[in-house]
Design a protein around this nucleic acid. Structure first.
Ligand SMILES: [Zn+2]
Ligand SMILES: [Zn+2]
Ligand SMILES: [Zn+2]
Ligand SMILES: [Zn+2]
Ligand SMILES: [Zn+2]
Length: 275
DNA sequence: CTTATGTAGGGAAAAGCCCGGG
DNA sequence: CCCCGGGCTTTTCCCTACATAA
């Protein structure tokens, strides 16, 4: 699991970390262009403000809210204040940990995959991805999770709870990130531009898929596709519809093109040298 | 009609960050 | 102090039903 992207691992040698993003930046198939300060996949181009990267300003003073923050500190009894961002903490050791955000320091690293973390507990939690430990279980569907908060989110898929409501329309969503994605349908923002044609997309992952058009990557170019599905028609009595069933997992699709796309999910080795 | 592709929601995995007990 | 675990938040990604253009 967890295939290495070409560009991960790299720890920013740059002093000026570009928003600390790595991830492949090379969506377009050649060149390097695309330094893309745009964020990841589905993104609200971020409220600027905090942790802002790159250029100038480097406001080390937290001007505006100094008074407010000081007051806050008073009230909450948080005597230790970060000089970079003016956040305050009750304990010095927490401030020390916090400061690593600004220094970029990540003292804990995984011996398995060499990823680095700012906190020891983050590393410990990360190790579960290697051990496969998933201690939390959904009572309704028995699915397991490595983090209890992910389980809690998952449970909403059973309860139907949708705490995140759009202000622009009457839709609601079970996850905040879903609402964020939805908002792009109102704003029309499409931060991800294809470098090889002039289309733009609202999500990075969609651009990635789109690039298959330019790279020519075909789901089944290397395989006898006809052997990878069953044509079933068990619904014939009602609708006359046919279904294309995946031979690997027996899911059914109304269109063969859906199945082709689906087959990408268990593609893998068998696309090697066989014809 | 079929197929390929864009759209958009559902949802999972993993990490970021903060906090308090010991 | 540190270590550690709990917990909320955020980021990133995958999957696929549906609409539509070719
Ligand atoms: Zn700070
Ligand atoms: Zn690792
Ligand atoms: Zn469940
Ligand atoms: Zn809306
Ligand atoms: Zn393109």
């Amino acid at each position: 699991m967890e295939e290495l992207e070409p560009s991960d691992i790299k720890e920013e040698p740059e002093p000026e970390q570009i928003k600390e993003e790595q991830e492949e930046l090379s969506i377009s198939r050649d060149e390097e262009h695309f330094s893309d300060s745009q964020d990841e996949d589905e993104s609200t181009s971020t409220t600027d403000g905090e942790t802002d990267p790159q250029n100038r300003v480097q406001e080390s003073q937290c001007d505006s809210d100094v008074g407010k923050n000081a007051k806050q500190t008073q009230i909450e009894n948080k005597p230790f204040t970060c000089e970079e961002c003016c956040k305050s903490f009750r304990r010095l050791c927490h401030l020390k940990t916090h400061r690593r955000i600004h220094t970029g320091e990540k003292p804990f690293f995984c011996k398995e995959c060499f990823k680095c973390f700012r906190e020891s507990s983050s590393l410990r939690r990360h190790m579960m991805t290697h051990t496969g430990e998933r201690p939390f279980f959904c009572l309704q569907c028995h699915q397991s999770f490595s983090q209890i908060s992910n389980l809690r989110t998952h449970v909403r898929t059973h309860t139907g709870e949708k705490p995140f409501a759009c202000k622009e329309c009457d839709k609601s969503f079970s996850e905040k990130s879903s609402l964020r994605k939805h908002m792009t349908t109102h704003t029309g923002e499409k931060p991800f531009a294809c470098q090889d044609c002039d289309q733009r997309f609202s999500r990075k992952s969609v651009l990635r898929t789109h690039m298959r058009i330019h790279t020519g990557e075909k789901p089944f170019a290397c395989k006898d596709f006809s052997r990878s599905y069953n044509l079933t028609s068990h619904m014939l009595t009602h609708t006359g519809e046919k279904f294309y069933a995946c031979k690997d997992c027996s899911k059914e699709f109304k269109q063969m093109s859906y199945l082709k796309r689906h087959m990408l999910t268990h593609t893998g080795e068998n696309c090697n040298k066989s014809n």
